[in-house]
Design a protein around this nucleic acid. Structure first.
Lengths: 188, 188
DNA sequence: CTTTATATAGACCGATCCATCTATATACGG
DNA sequence: CCGTATATAGATGGATCGGTCTATATAAAG
């Protein structure tokens, strides 16, 4: 079946919001690009803010699903590496110009508590996945290791945007390996 | 002497842009908050885009000066640590909600090549400072170490915004120490 | 055939956007 | 004292903003 108008709007809005910014993208631009009429948007979403929230929520779902798929089949000792690799593939495929949640936090911190909270929750989800992965790798004893790896992934977002996937993802992997090796050493 | 109108405008615009976003902050808001009339702004800046560029440029100057001051007096072997600490103090004092350059890249990538280039250049300056610091510490042999530390600092920006300075800066320091210790070990 | 849901076309609203204009006022330096 | 620079006050411009409205059209489900 063809994508519903609602899905067309979500996909179009996601692309425009990500590439051109939230406030800089008007409703008219979105409906025109989606090949849909103005009222159709307001039939599916109560407001622009609701549309933004829906875009972020659905994108985050896909992001989490891709991480979970990648780690599900990983063997113990390689779960965290699999997670970091999956994160890198996401950047490569869907997020080469910075993280949409970070952008949303920057644009809506003072304008929408709902959207800001949604972005913060998304980051908390990522940190939780790191903690779970470390646990499966037997590395959950080190206080702060999950947060340190989280910091690396956040930096990787910006590094990819500035230096390209080739360099940035190689650096991310090397950095992660160093951290995990040190952590492994402290265990034995 | 009291701050010039131009400086008042720069300071006010910097605060509003940083806290509320660039596109979300209108000219009227800025002039009202600065206690200045509309034409005064256009007497000093050709356009809103020029104002944004001036804000980013002056802020970046201050940022670089604070880094250089901190590293100038550092003893060899502690220069990079001093740089990372100075970066942390900057986040604490002036940038607790994310990096303004990252925000600018997100909002202007598709709208102003001048502003985008300015932000990219600012990030290149930071990376260059890391390379110079590592050289003074005798750690410039390790390929990619500067970029890895850069990645950590970029992640630190977001981590501070999400977890607060207390936790995030402690994690940043621990992470940096690990990386520098490993690099030091590889030298001997 | 008729009901219900969804989409279209397009006018309309007040608000705000960035930018420009003229005319007046203030203040400092030669 | 006079000229230049800077600031003020306030109107004005066209464009776009997010959001609402009505009337019409389509199509599937009863």
């Amino acid at each position: 079946m063809p994508a519903s108008k609602r899905d067309q709007l979500l996909a179009t809005a996601e692309q425009l919001f990500y590439e051109e910014g939230f406030h800089a993208t008007g409703i008219d631009r979105i409906v025109a690009a989606a090949g849909v009429v103005r009222m159709t948007l307001y039939n599916h979403f109560a407001s622009k803010e609701a549309l933004v929230a829906a875009v972020l929520a659905t994108r985050h779902e896909r992001f989490m699903a891709s991480l979970d798929t990648a780690t599900a089949s990983a063997v113990p000792g390689q779960v965290t590496r699999a997670l970091v690799d999956a994160h890198g593939r996401w950047l490569e495929d869907h997020s080469p110009h910075g993280c949409i949640m970070v952008k949303a936090m920057g644009e809506f911190a003072e304008h929408s508590t709902e959207i800001h909270a949604l972005a913060v929750a998304a980051k908390a989800d990522l940190l939780a996945r790191l903690e779970a992965s470390l646990a499966r790798d037997g590395l959950d004893h080190q206080d702060g290791l999950a947060r340190q790896l989280f910091m690396v992934l956040e930096g990787s977002n910006t590094a990819v945007a500035l230096q390209g996937t080739q360099t940035a993802l190689a650096d991310t992997q090397a950095l992660t390996d160093t951290l995990l090796s040190v952590a492994q050493g402290k265990t034995e």
